[in-house]
């Protein structure tokens, strides 16, 4: 890609990334949440790969990393849900943390934590899908 594209991508990526994090952590207050924010974050990564390019080997190692992150995020989500078996109530998926006040950033118990897990999961999953398709295309053309 041309230097202009690379420079603009460099400047934009940080802002896009921050915006994604903002959407994820405000998931229980505003529209959005884990899925939307995760999609934005994965957009930042995809922009970097598109602007700077990479060789296949590099992409493959990144794909392995992102798929591990994806699985770990799902396991974290499951752990949060299963913890409810042991903490306080014995009910699956119950909200065992203090609820706080409506409208504050730290409120709504475990829901922000679920949002963060989903956000990481979606970002990693979409990036993995993108990388898998790119790697497959490279393998066809060579």
């Amino acid at each position: 890609m041309s230097p202009i594209v690379k420079k603009v991508a460099q400047l934009m990526v940080g802002i896009i990334f921050m915006y994604g994090i903002y959407i994820i952590v405000h998931g229980h207050l505003t529209p959005g949440g884990g899925f939307a924010g995760g999609a934005v974050i994965s957009g930042a990564f995809i922009l970097l790969v598109l602007a700077f390019g990479s060789n296949v080997m590099n992409l493959k190692s990144r794909e392995e990393g992102s798929s591990v992150v994806e699985s770990v995020a799902i396991l974290f989500f499951l752990l949060l849900a299963v913890l409810a078996f042991f903490i306080g109530t014995t009910i699956f998926f119950s909200n065992y943390l203090p609820k706080g006040n409506i409208g504050e950033l730290i409120s709504a118990g475990v829901i922000p934590l679920y949002n963060i897990a989903v956000g990481v999961e979606v970002a990693a999953a979409l990036f993995t899908i993108f990388l898998a398709l790119v790697i497959y295309k490279e393998e066809i053309s060579t």
Partner: peptide
């Protein structure tokens, strides 16, 4: 009707 967001 408005969007279903609890604003207090």
């Amino acid at each position: 009707a408005s969007a279903p967001i609890l604003t207090g």
